[in-house]
Write a protein that binds this DNA or RNA. Sequence first.
DNA 1: TCAGACATGTAAGTCGTTACATGATTCA
DNA 2: TGAATCATGTAACGACTTACATGTCTGA
Lengths: 185, 185
Amino acid sequence: MSGYDIKKLVEMGLSHFWNENYGNLYPTLESLVETGLATRQADPDSGKRKRNIYQITEAGHLAFQEWLSRPTDPPAIRNELQLKFFLSSTQPKKVSLRIVREYRVQQQALLAEYQQSAALLRRAIDAGEYPEEVEEILGQHAARRSASHKAKQYKVFLLSLRHGILAIQARITWCDEVLSELSTK
Amino acid sequence: MSGYDIKKLVEMGLSHFWNENYGNLYPTLESLVETGLATRQADPDSGKRKRNIYQITEAGHLAFQEWLSRPTDPPAIRNELQLKFFLSSTQPKKVSLRIVREYRVQQQALLAEYQQSAALLRRAIDAGEYPEEVEEILGQHAARRSASHKAKQYKVFLLSLRHGILAIQARITWCDEVLSELSTK
DNA sequence: TCAGACATGTAAGTCGTTACATGATTCA
DNA sequence: TGAATCATGTAACGACTTACATGTCTGA
């Protein structure tokens, strides 16, 4: 796919666990080509508009598999909202409460979004019919996918989303616990 | 407290949602003093060893409250493990399974830690007796704390930890869902 | 025709981490 | 006495983001 496509894929499908920006993306693709892990070719279908299609190479596949098998260290976390909540212990109770209420509103909105996407995917998997709007995101980097590969792809996509949903639900549960804990006493 | 104390506090108490390093900490403290939000004074009790105690000023309090009241935008997330899982849809099932199993082991170990700390705090709150090992972390920056302030501080500390615990439990639940979903079919 | 999407790229700047340098003190 | 901890600080590097520059194409 192209750099632009990758950006779209990440934005529309992976935003609950990843983000990417052009300033990082294009130089990275460049270096992949330089090191022989990918090839670049101008898209012939795009006329005058320049559009580069990147293909993973054999060496790229190996490097990818090696990366997949490498142990992953947990991300360094900096949750500003949690920091504020912790430090609000020096302030009147209502300050802590306001922080948590704001958090809850944020998370609730996200949850609605994710649940809608999940429902779409769930229907697609159950029906075995893959909707265009998802195919546009998932399909473009693998023109010829077998039915079983497609099925696995959708299943994994849904499970990724499921991770986001469970995480958010846990946060909302926390908000509710805090709210009742702090307001009753 | 001193820069060193802050580092310790973050490491021992806030590691599930924050991390700090000297390269960031000392220059920041320096700039707080420069802008009049804090004062620095050499600790007279520390003999020849140099130790700077920082105190928040009136202006610092105001800036702190202003920061607390500012809306917090959700952190930009980059979860490499989730990315690997998503991209493993192109690989044999066992690759996805391995990734999730590894994740589960990590999270399970963390959970045990957090639950132990939470139990300690819970006992302290219920008994109204604050153990030295926690006081060392929480107490040093506020020599004279009222009983009610202390109680709120411990309650908020425990609730912060509770956030970490709920988050981890959600991740473990996810792992179990994925494991059963992927291995049975 | 013109706004918005498509598409690529770079320069500058910010933020954060690592590694190092330095020295005092404590305690086994 | 020597390892561990206390304590402060900086330089260099690397990661990441923002803003900008440039041009094409599509559809209302």
